[in-house]
Amino acid sequence: AASTFIDDLSTWYIRRNRRRFWRSRDAADQDKLAAYQTLYDVLVTLVKLLAPCLPFLTERMYQNLVRSWDETAPESVHLCDYPDVDPSLLDPRLNAEMAAAQRVVRLGHKLRDAANLRVRQPLPELRFVATDSAERDAVVRLADLVREELNVKRITPCESLDDLVHYVYKPNLKTLGPKYGKLLGAIREELAKGDAARLATLRQGESVELAIAGQTVVLLPEDVLIETRQAQDWLCASDRDLQVALSTAISPELKREGMARDFVRHVQQLRKEKNLEIEDHILVYWHTDSDEVRAALGEWDGYIRTETLAERLDCQPAPTDQAKRVTVGDAKAAVWIQRA
């Protein structure tokens, strides 16, 4: 449970709020302060919860988080009261809505990974079908969040994905043979012509009953092999009562945007390697022989400067000794930075 929570905290809450954390220092910025205070409260509570299991690590974290500035606090995390549950802090509706959005995001990432499509490459559309109306409405309300997480231009709720994907159901001879023997041929025919909506329960991990040759045949999910056949330039996946389809058609405009995002990542890595502060402004220099990279960096100049706090981007005739060789999209480039 702790591992799952920490994963949610780091890969969801902190990453989703990174722009709040990164904003320039401003004593009047209450939103940034709220983000830090929430994270601080969560970390301190988590340290107290895990103290019996991880005594040394939690003690070190407690000393850094609490005792480093509050001398009135208990001297050790092991001297603190164990946290109590506060039901008033729970928001079941918000939790359910965010869980629905996370399900869509997880399926979208699964499709990207299967197709080896990096998240920095924008894609045109994701379509989804949710049989639960509350879950569908939640994803619609949080569409901007889902769109940003998956880096797609459009989120479209649908009643069906039949025009993009269909499923072929075949008997699993290894499990059905010992159970139904002579009925295998009839089962194969029934699966081939069966009602798609009825057989869909198999994809949701549930069994289905069929009337075959005067007998009731119960098919478990492991009794049926399911093949997914999808339209060109689309990837499809499902998780019980949720289906998603991701368009993989990459236009030249989307490709250039993906290259700009690649470039931003390389610059951010250089900032990290130089131990720059979040608010430090920089000058960015680059060189490439690729016309495609030049076009992408020219088109997305403003976006790159905003994301990296760069005063300007300068194309140079040749790289210096300090330049870092990087891959931008499918092309090669060199980039180096200095504090402004």
Results as ranks from 00 to 15, higher is better:
170 K>C: 02
114 A>F: 10
134 A>I: 04
146 V>G: 01
136 R>C: 13
191 L>C: 04
83 P>G: 07
153 K>C: 06
146 V>D: 00
135 E>K: 14
90 L>W: 03
96 A>M: 08
127 R>P: 01
121 Q>V: 04
111 L>D: 04
100 A>T: 03
124 P>W: 02
143 A>E: 15
96 A>P: 04
127 R>I: 06
132 D>A: 05
109 H>Q: 13
200 A>S: 15
155 I>M: 14
134 A>W: 11
82 Y>E: 06
133 S>G: 00
163 D>A: 14
136 R>L: 13
176 L>H: 07
115 A>G: 01
180 Y>Q: 00
98 M>K: 14
162 D>G: 14
84 D>R: 15
149 E>P: 01
120 R>W: 10
166 H>K: 10
106 R>G: 02
64 N>G: 02
94 L>P: 01
59 E>A: 09
180 Y>T: 02
161 L>E: 11
68 S>Q: 14
105 V>S: 04
131 T>C: 04
129 V>I: 12
145 L>F: 13
196 A>T: 09
88 S>D: 11
145 L>Q: 06
67 R>C: 12
83 P>K: 07
166 H>N: 11
198 R>Q: 15
83 P>H: 07
187 I>T: 05
189 E>F: 01
165 V>T: 07
116 N>C: 11
66 V>L: 12
120 R>L: 14
175 T>E: 14
169 Y>R: 06
103 R>T: 11
127 R>S: 08
162 D>Q: 13
78 H>S: 08
114 A>W: 09
64 N>C: 11
99 A>C: 10
80 C>Q: 08
193 K>E: 12
156 T>H: 00
128 F>S: 04
191 L>E: 07
104 V>E: 10
138 A>R: 06
83 P>V: 07
122 P>N: 05
190 E>A: 14
67 R>V: 13
166 H>M: 08
146 V>R: 05
58 T>C: 15
96 A>Q: 12
58 T>N: 06
160 S>H: 09
189 E>L: 03
191 L>P: 02
73 A>Y: 08
140 V>Y: 03
170 K>N: 10
132 D>L: 05
111 L>A: 04
76 S>L: 07
151 N>Q: 12
191 L>H: 00
187 I>R: 03
